[in-house]
Amino acid sequence: MQGMIWLLGFLIGASPDSVAQQIMWRVYNRPSFQDMHAQITMTLIDPNGTQRVRKMETWSKKDPKTGETKMLIKFMEPADLRGTAFLIYQHKDREDDMWFYLPALRKTKRLAASGKSGAFMGSDFSNYDIGGGEYEDWNYRLLREEDLDGIPCWVIEALPKSPDVEKKSGYSKEIRWVNKENDLVVRTDHYDRSEMLYKRTVVKDAVQIQGIWFERVIEATDLDSGHRTVMEFTDIRVNQGLPDDLFSIRALGR
């Protein structure tokens, strides 16, 4: 169905905007892994250079039928969060389901929250940056083509389709640099709700795993404060047939 729409767009003609829609459609619909495991190291860096490290382990799995993803995140560092875990069922047509486990209370509970624009664990990434975005949220416009650090890119402006998108993402505009060779967004400039540029995310390293490109190191910088966060994926293992049981609520506290 979505292929049809894409084809239709292609046939109707190539106004710059529809070119942008096509590019971004490809970006959002890049082939992805069936399942994945990784260690994530998040380094939060103060403007004066002080670093704080958060480590977590994640597992995710895509339902081949619905395309919806289940994700498990377990904290390892800092020590007082060790064992704290979140389980997220992402849904395309409704709010995600979320559960958490707090080892200190030995409790698993459901979490209803709608704070997607919230900062992810005090980092410079928002929850929206990390996994809340949808192709359908934005209108796209091709601004220009240019080289970014020697990589030929499309530069695309994304404007929220509705006030709700602006509210949930916290962004009034994004400018995205898309690598022409592999459809990876290599840099995004985020504009806050007063339309001021305030954050930049840059892909520092990408790797090809089983033919699929993956952003391995991403850095987000708060341009107001100079605070940075570097998120690095290591120990990446993909398509190893993770059992559904791993993503059950009962398994959260294990």
């Binding site: 002080t50 704080r52 007082d80 200190a104 979490l111 704070g115 919230g118």
Partner: peptide, 28 residues
């Protein structure tokens, strides 16, 4: 108790609007 508090804070931070916690306490 410190661990209990730490986990409350992590939970809150993940679920609230941005900047709510940062307003009251430094990241450290």
């Amino acid at each position: 108790g410190r661990e209990v508090v730490a986990q409350y804070l992590a939970l809150y931070q993940l679920s609230s609007r941005p900047g709510q916690l940062e307003r009251m306490v430094t990241p450290d």
